[in-house]
Design a binder for these strands. Structure first.
Ligand SMILES: Cc1cn([C@H]2C[C@H](O)[C@@H](COP(=O)(O)OP(=O)(O)OP(=O)(O)O)O2)c(=O)[nH]c1=O
Ligand SMILES: [Mg+2]
Length: 934
DNA sequence: ATGCCAACCTGC
DNA sequence: GCAGGT
DNA sequence: GCAT
């Protein structure tokens, strides 16, 4: 990407270029333009394309036909910005901007409805006392006066900048061959590893079954391709799988799974899959690579075999890059590496690449005591790929870390400054392992722990080779003898030996310590549990997020979190994803991460974030964050974008569309209905901008909830109303109130709960809790939607509306019962739309979830959140071949592998009623609602 | 280069 | 089918 | 954004 020509301090603020364009330039982020996938991700692709169309990046010239000059930015309506202004007060706490709506016109809040009410909004309808105000959706109410159609507001739309939509994608076919070679060599080296283990493995010929509970393959039968155990690697795999209960069959038809050698591609095996070879495997048999059983064993779980991870190359389902068998197989390189011995879980290092070419061949120390692991190979640089390896004691080398595209024009790059300054004394090496290792006496509990995690790391790197998780001491004794087998590929044998030796040392150590209890127990101690990699398994309290936390990287995390929040606002999905993961690993560290190389050694932290981490650690600031913060609070367009994003019902595309039309304030929008095309909900969002951006103090949530529950009890005492959401997690303030409504005996489809809700809402309104509906229960009643997917989603078929979504106001008499009353209208101006006296009615967002009794557990899980926790749980479920949604946990759900991600099989329900059981089935330890902050 | 990915719901 | 929401 |  050509370097941008601006400097940060010479930005022309009048330039009608929005924040994101500049960020992209500053970023030198290579935008991932092509998502071949559809659905949400396809949507995202289009969104990005559109965003770029708005921002018209002049700097990515290759594809655009005619780069437009900045002057051609549509400045359609500078006239609309006159007259009024909305001011954001960023000084208020909790970062909830309070917007004061000022208008030039003397009586902005006019007209015959209630003061402060805007025509054609839910509120206006409410104030006119429509009888069914709570039951009809806003649009229905507004239908009568629907605005006439006018010209499209997407003026920008056809300033087509020819977004580089799919640049040069065809080349992937060829490049894939090269990619192939790497994986082939990886497989080959793995195989050679296996060959080494053959001798020791031979002792395991006597099949011993794992304990029954551990036999994850009990109902499986594997057909291997090639279906023999000639190759030592495969023989061991097969034996291993058998120990976990698999049946090794000789005919494809009898198999539940076909396990394919990694050197084979689809077309090699298509013929063996029977008549339907090219039909995508019409039969039930599942085709996986050899990695699948290994991973299942490693995680002691039946994983979802349909993940891309386990897909045979060239599979027809997803048009994976076809490739001839990688005959260009490179020479197997020495893949010793793995110097790190002392990584603890909290210091877990990145897995070194498989083909690491490290030529260092430090002879392994032969001593058997743990302290002997002190050999130089434990230097962290060994764990890094050569291109990344650097001498951590030379600050100047940090320049290697700088992003190539980082604009030189960046004003006095803080990163540069910190790097040239001798911030890091030699006494603070980037890798703290020596001290830690010294601390690890052999008798202490810590020493073995370090050794164990090094073993874990090795397992993860060389997961291709099945490990003797529960091999008996005899096996180990043998293996120590036969550790080196010069049979194959002499060039890496020594490293093999080293690795082997270390592994065995670990095993010995373990055995010494835990005196060979059930060998499986050892295994579970050794292997990081599959579930533990998901954030839903890790702790998380609201305190653990707050600044009172004693996390050593607290400051870094906080700043990175702000970056995450920023990118979330920009809907930059994948960057957000990466930040989340990086922050997650950072949060697990027990020591401060101070240098970039230190950070780089951690998983999910790459060069860009590592640089940022170092910058934060040394300067307590992050230039880029300062820049974007300043930008979004200074630049008029960015300010407007942020302002509009605060409107309920407005997202980034809409907000950017408005700023492109020249709108800058809320009144701009209200005064140009033709162009702004506000939906009814958006009108309410503007009208109640402040209300809906104000968080609700906990005690007020309690008051509101008590009131609602009380009224509900009078409607039907057998209906249970539970408050979920952040309130259930113990939050001190909530953005809304989430109610779960359920009743024993209710089933999907019977309209009992719907009727209850209608009655409840009517009574609530009658008691002064005026409100409005934002989205009503539609419930798939009308057959408008009949596609397969929809029907599947709507397994809540029939008249089962499930969620109601609207606003309520705490009635005054209820509000008065709150201990410190909620601010009696600071400026008691009677003309200000306040009810009377001083009461200041605030619209509060409220959600009702109607739940059949058999789904209460899943609904609680869903509605308690938080959102990240939910997504983590659901991801975990899907990785295990299950599906989790608000109705329940399903087993055997198949989500089509392809980009379409259709739901092949709904799956059979496993659990929905008991929240606790869902945790159990998923293998996640129970977490109290208070501990579900992720 | 390309994958990564929660699973739904309503409004328009 | 997209936008916005939980 | 990171990892492969
Ligand atoms: C926003 C969101 C919520 N949820 C679930 C988890 C949430 O706890 C629950 C309610 O949603 P929210 O009310 O939006 O979130 P919250 O209650 O956790 O936080 P607050 O109201 O204080 O802002 O719905 C999702 O599953 N996915 C989502 O994207
Ligand atoms: Mg909530």
């Amino acid at each position: 990407m050509s370097s941008p020509t601006f400097t940060a301090n010479t930005i022309d603020f009048d330039e009608k270029v929005n924040l994101f364009r500049r960020l992209d330039a500053l970023d030198d982020a290579s935008d991932e333009d092509d998502d071949l996938e559809k659905g949400l991700w396809e949507r995202e692709r289009k969104r990005k394309a559109k965003c770029r169309a708005f921002t018209r990046r002049v700097d990515c010239a290759p594809y655009q036909s005619a780069p437009r000059t900045p002057g051609t930015v549509p400045t359609s309506s500078k006239n609309t910005t006159t007259g009024s202004k909305a001011v954001i007060d960023l000084t208020s706490d909790e970062a909830d901007p309070v917007v004061i709506l000022r208008t030039a016109s003397p009586s902005p809040r006019r007209n015959q409805t209630a003061p402060g009410v805007i025509e054609n909004t839910p509120l206006s309808a409410l104030s006119k006392r429509h009888p069914d105000i709570l039951h009809r959706t806003a649009s229905e109410r507004a239908a009568a006066t629907a605005a006439a159609a006018d010209d499209s507001f997407m003026v920008i739309k056809e300033t087509p900048i020819r977004v580089p939509d799919t640049p040069a994608r065809e080349s992937t076919v060829h490049t894939s061959i090269i990619i192939d070679s790497s994986s082939v060599s990886a497989a080959a080296s793995a195989s050679s590893n296996m060959a080494k283990k053959r001798k020791r493995g031979s002792s395991a010929e006597t099949l011993k079954l794992a304990p029954k509970a551990e036999r994850i393959f009990d109902t499986f039968s594997f057909f291997y391709i090639p279906n023999d155990d000639i190759h030592p690697a495969r023989r061991i795999r097969i034996a291993k799988a058998k120990e976990y209960g698999v049946r090794w069959v000789r005919k494809v038809e009898e198999a539940t799974h076909v396990v394919v050698d990694k050197n084979l591609v689809w077309k090699d095996i298509a013929g063996m899959l029977g008549h339907d070879g090219q039909d995508g495997g019409g039969t039930d048999v599942v085709v996986v690579t050899e990695d699948y059983p290994v991973d299942c064993i490693r995680y002691k779980t039946t994983l979802n075999p349909r993940q891309k991870l386990y897909e045979v190359k060239g599979s027809p389902e997803r048009a994976a890059a076809p490739s001839t068998v990688g005959e260009k197989q490179k020479e197997v390189v020495n893949e010793k590496g793995l110097g790190k011995i002392v990584s603890r879980e909290d210091l877990q290092l990145k897995h070194p690449p498989r083909n690491q070419r490290s030529r260092l061949r430090d002879e392994p120390s032969q001593a058997t005591t743990p302290s002997s692991t002190q050999e130089p190979s434990s230097h962290p640089a060994r764990a890094l790929p050569p291109s990344r390896a650097r001498n951590p004691t030379y600050p100047s080398l940090q320049r290697h870390c700088t992003v190539p595209g980082r604009p030189a024009a960046l004003p006095t790059g803080a990163g540069e400054r910190t790097m040239s300054s001798p911030v890091r004394s030699p006494s603070s090496p980037s890798f703290p392992s020596p001290t830690r290792r010294l601390a690890s006496g052999k008798g202490t509990g810590k020493g073995p722990e370090d050794e164990l995690s090094s073993y874990i790391s090795m397992m993860q790197q060389y997961k291709d080779l099945p490990l003797d998780h529960y091999s008996s001491s005899d096996d180990d004794a043998k293996s120590t003898i036969t550790q080196d087998d010069p049979l194959d590929s002499s060039e890496h044998e020594l490293s093999e030996g080293e690795r082997e030796l270390k592994r065995q040392k670990v095993i010995k150590l373990t055995k010494n310590k835990s005196s060979s209890t059930s060998s499986m127990a050892q295994n579970s101690n050794l292997a990081a549990r599959f579930e533990d990699r998901f954030s839903c398994s890790r702790g998380g309290t609201k305190e653990s997020k707050s600044s009172t936390s004693n996390n050593p990287n607290h400051n870094t995390i906080e700043i990175l979190q702000k970056m995450l929040d920023y990118y979330t606002r920009t809907s930059d999905h994948w960057r957000t994803y990466a930040y989340r993961r990086a922050i997650s690993t950072l949060r697990q560290q027990s020591i401060p991460i101070l240098t970039s190389s230190q950070a780089l050694s951690l998983p999910n932290i790459g060069v860009r974030l590592a640089d940022k981490i170092q910058e934060i650690a040394t300067t307590s600031r992050l230039q880029k964050l300062d820049y974007v913060t300043n930008q979004s609070s200074t630049d008029p367009v960015d300010r407007a974008t942020q302002l509009f994003l605060g409107i309920y019902g407005v997202g980034l595309p809409t907000a950017q569309g408005w700023t492109s039309l020249g709108f800058r304030t809320l009144t701009d929008l209200l005064q140009n209905p033709e162009k702004a095309r506000l939906t009814p909900n958006q009108k309410l969002g503007i009208e109640r901008y402040s209300d809906l951006n104000t968080r609700i103090p906990r005690r007020e949530v309690s008051a509101l909830a008590n009131w609602v529950v009380g009224v509900g009890k009078r409607v039907d005492p057998s209906v249970k109303i539970i408050v979920g959401g952040s309130y259930r997690r113990g939050a001190k303030s909530s953005g809304d109130v989430d109610f779960i409504v359920t009743k024993e005996g209710t089933r999907e489809g019977d309209g009992k709960l719907v009727m209850f809700l209608e009655e409840l809402l009517a009574r609530l309104e009658g008691e002064g809790g005026m409100g409005c509906a934002l989205a009503s229960l539609r419930g798939n009643v009308d057959g408008k939607r009949g596609t397969n997917k929809q029907r599947w989603k709507g397994s809540n078929s029939g008249t089962d509306g499930s969620k109601w979504h609207g606003c309520l106001v705490l009635p005054e008499h209820i509000a008065n019962t709150i201990s410190p009353p909620p601010e009696q209208s600071a400026v008691a101006t009677p003309s200000d739309g306040r009810t009377s006296r001083g009461y200041n009615p605030v619209f509060r967002r409220v959600d009702f979830l109607l739940v059949p009794s058999a789904q209460l557990g899943a609904a609680l899980l869903y509605f308690t959140g938080n959102d990240i926790f939910n997504r983590s749980m659901r991801l975990l479920a899907s990785k295990k071949g299950m599906r989790l949604n608000q109705r329940g946990l399903y087993k055997g759900a198949l989500r089509g592998p392809g980009p379409g991600r259709e739901n092949i099989a709904e799956g059979e329900p496993v659990e929905g009623r008991d929240e606790r059981r869902i945790f159990e089935v998923l293998g996640v330890g129970w977490r109290e609602p208070e501990d579900r902050w992720c």
